[in-house]
Amino acid sequence: MTWYPLIIRSFSKRSIQKILSINGSSTVDEIHKELGKIMWDYCGMSRTAQGLSDAREKIQAVKQQFWNDVKVLGTNDELNMSLEKAGRVADFIELGALMIEDALHRNESCGGHFREEYQTEEGEALRDDEHFAYVGAWEYQGEGNQEVQNKEQLQFENVKLSQRSYK
């Protein structure tokens, strides 16, 4: 077992070196801004099936861009705020993709999730309690594979589900 620590060093270095070695032309902030724009435009205050499907493609392009063209200077062995941020943005991109999947599958409007296809005549969120009164819990399936959704059905024994009204 004594030889393990030696391996740690080289492997961990290599994985962080990956980000450091790409040396492309896009800064971390630029990529983050692109991700943010996609998320805000398609997965923000209101969402549509079409928009979300488009966003699905666009986000893959951002992911490609990150892993092929990101530019992070410096080394791992120092205070390196660009490197910190790069790791975070890499995760945001993957999470963004999952948010889009989740928004796309939830064919109803509820709370902060407003799908334009599902609204009352007055423009209020229209829930679909029959089909969507559950928690969508996503399960990672390995790099590049579609995540699997598990459902936890919500039980309402004390409150009566009703159309929210603040009128």
Binding site: C43, G44, R47, G87, R88, D91, F92, E94, L95, L98, M99, I100, D102, A103, R106, G111, G112, H113, V135, G136, A137, W138, E139, Y140, N150, E152
Partner: peptide, 21 residues
Amino acid sequence: NTTAIWRAHKKGALFANPCFT
């Protein structure tokens, strides 16, 4: 950032209702 929970997710923790923002 999401790094801690996202990496836990990749280790098997389920991620619930990510689209609820």
